[in-house]
Protein backbone atom coordinates (compact mmCIF):
# COMPACT_ATOMS: atom_id res chain seq x y z
CA UNK A 1 0.00 0.00 0.00
CA UNK A 2 1.31 3.45 -0.89
CA UNK A 3 2.48 5.80 1.84
CA UNK A 4 0.08 8.42 0.50
CA UNK A 5 -2.96 6.17 0.94
CA UNK A 6 -1.83 5.23 4.45
CA UNK A 7 -1.53 8.89 5.31
CA UNK A 8 -5.06 9.50 4.03
CA UNK A 9 -6.42 6.67 6.16
CA UNK A 10 -4.61 8.05 9.18
CA UNK A 11 -5.92 11.57 8.52
CA UNK A 12 -9.53 10.34 8.18
CA UNK A 13 -9.30 8.25 11.35
CA UNK A 14 -7.67 11.00 13.39
CA UNK A 15 -9.91 13.74 11.96
CA UNK A 16 -13.22 12.00 12.66
CA UNK A 17 -12.11 10.90 16.11
CA UNK A 18 -10.90 14.37 17.04
CA UNK A 19 -14.07 16.09 15.79
CA UNK A 20 -16.19 13.77 17.94
CA UNK A 21 -14.10 14.74 20.93
CA UNK A 22 -13.72 18.44 20.36
CA UNK A 23 -17.15 19.57 19.12
CA UNK A 24 -19.12 19.03 22.35
CA UNK A 25 -16.35 20.74 24.33
CA UNK A 26 -16.17 23.77 22.09
CA UNK A 27 -19.87 24.18 21.26
CA UNK A 28 -21.27 23.45 24.69
CA UNK A 29 -20.28 26.26 27.01
CA UNK A 30 -23.49 26.89 28.92
CA UNK A 31 -24.28 25.23 32.18
CA UNK A 32 -26.94 22.54 31.90
CA UNK A 33 -29.89 23.23 34.20
CA UNK A 34 -32.10 20.16 33.81
CA UNK A 35 -31.79 17.91 36.89
CA UNK A 36 -32.33 14.84 34.72
CA UNK A 37 -29.52 15.74 32.31
CA UNK A 38 -27.24 16.74 35.18
CA UNK A 39 -27.86 13.45 36.97
CA UNK A 40 -27.43 11.60 33.69
CA UNK A 41 -24.03 13.18 33.09
CA UNK A 42 -23.07 12.51 36.70
CA UNK A 43 -23.76 8.77 36.29
CA UNK A 44 -22.15 8.43 32.84
CA UNK A 45 -18.56 7.71 33.97
CA UNK A 46 -19.64 5.00 36.40
CA UNK A 47 -21.92 3.35 33.86
CA UNK A 48 -19.33 3.48 31.08
CA UNK A 49 -16.58 2.10 33.30
CA UNK A 50 -18.79 -0.71 34.58
CA UNK A 51 -19.72 -1.71 31.05
CA UNK A 52 -16.11 -1.52 29.90
CA UNK A 53 -14.74 -3.55 32.80
CA UNK A 54 -17.11 -6.50 32.77
CA UNK A 55 -16.94 -8.80 30.91
CA UNK A 56 -13.82 -7.48 29.12
CA UNK A 57 -11.63 -7.95 32.20
CA UNK A 58 -12.04 -11.72 32.03
CA UNK A 59 -10.16 -11.88 28.75
CA UNK A 60 -7.56 -9.22 29.60
CA UNK A 61 -4.91 -11.72 30.70
CA UNK A 62 -3.68 -15.09 29.50
CA UNK A 63 -6.01 -17.07 31.73
CA UNK A 64 -9.48 -16.63 33.16
CA UNK A 65 -8.22 -17.71 36.59
CA UNK A 66 -5.53 -15.03 36.83
CA UNK A 67 -7.99 -12.37 35.62
CA UNK A 68 -10.47 -13.39 38.33
CA UNK A 69 -7.80 -13.26 41.03
CA UNK A 70 -6.63 -9.84 39.79
CA UNK A 71 -10.20 -8.57 39.71
CA UNK A 72 -10.88 -9.86 43.23
CA UNK A 73 -7.73 -8.22 44.59
CA UNK A 74 -8.68 -4.94 42.91
CA UNK A 75 -12.24 -5.00 44.28
CA UNK A 76 -11.08 -5.77 47.83
CA UNK A 77 -8.48 -3.00 47.78
CA UNK A 78 -10.86 -0.49 46.21
CA UNK A 79 -13.48 -1.41 48.82
CA UNK A 80 -10.95 -0.29 51.41
CA UNK A 81 -10.49 2.97 49.48
CA UNK A 82 -6.96 2.46 48.21
CA UNK A 83 -5.85 4.84 45.45
CA UNK A 84 -5.76 4.21 41.71
CA UNK A 85 -2.08 3.35 41.44
CA UNK A 86 -1.90 0.92 44.41
CA UNK A 87 -5.01 -0.90 43.18
CA UNK A 88 -3.72 -1.13 39.60
CA UNK A 89 -0.27 -2.35 40.71
CA UNK A 90 -1.69 -4.88 43.15
CA UNK A 91 -4.03 -6.24 40.49
CA UNK A 92 -1.14 -6.66 38.02
CA UNK A 93 1.03 -8.28 40.69
CA UNK A 94 -1.80 -10.66 41.57
CA UNK A 95 -2.07 -11.73 37.93
CA UNK A 96 1.68 -12.20 37.65
CA UNK A 97 1.91 -14.30 40.83
CA UNK A 98 -1.18 -16.36 39.98
CA UNK A 99 0.13 -17.24 36.53
CA UNK A 100 3.53 -18.06 38.01
CA UNK A 101 1.92 -20.36 40.59
CA UNK A 102 -0.17 -21.99 37.88
CA UNK A 103 2.97 -22.83 35.93
CA UNK A 104 4.68 -24.20 39.04
CA UNK A 105 1.81 -26.46 40.06
Amino acid sequence: MSAERLLWYTAVMAGVTYLIRVLPLVLFRREIKSPFVKSFLYYIPYAVLGAMTIPAVFSATRSLVSACVGLAVAVIMAWHRKGLLPVAIAACAAVFVTEWLMRML
Binding site: P45, Y46, L49, G50, M52, T53, A56, V57, A60, T61, A67, G70, L71, V73, A74, V75, M77, A78, K82, G83, L84, V87, A88, I89, A90, A91, C92, A94, V95
Partner: peptide, 11 residues
Protein backbone atom coordinates in the same frame (compact mmCIF):
# COMPACT_ATOMS: atom_id res chain seq x y z
CA UNK B 1 -5.17 -5.86 34.15
CA UNK B 2 -3.76 -2.41 35.01
CA UNK B 3 -6.53 -0.48 33.29
CA UNK B 4 -9.27 -2.56 34.85
CA UNK B 5 -7.71 -2.33 38.32
CA UNK B 6 -7.89 1.41 37.91
CA UNK B 7 -11.52 1.33 36.78
CA UNK B 8 -12.39 -0.74 39.84
CA UNK B 9 -10.63 1.77 42.09
CA UNK B 10 -12.82 4.50 40.59
CA UNK B 11 -16.21 2.82 40.74
Amino acid sequence: LAIYGMFIAII
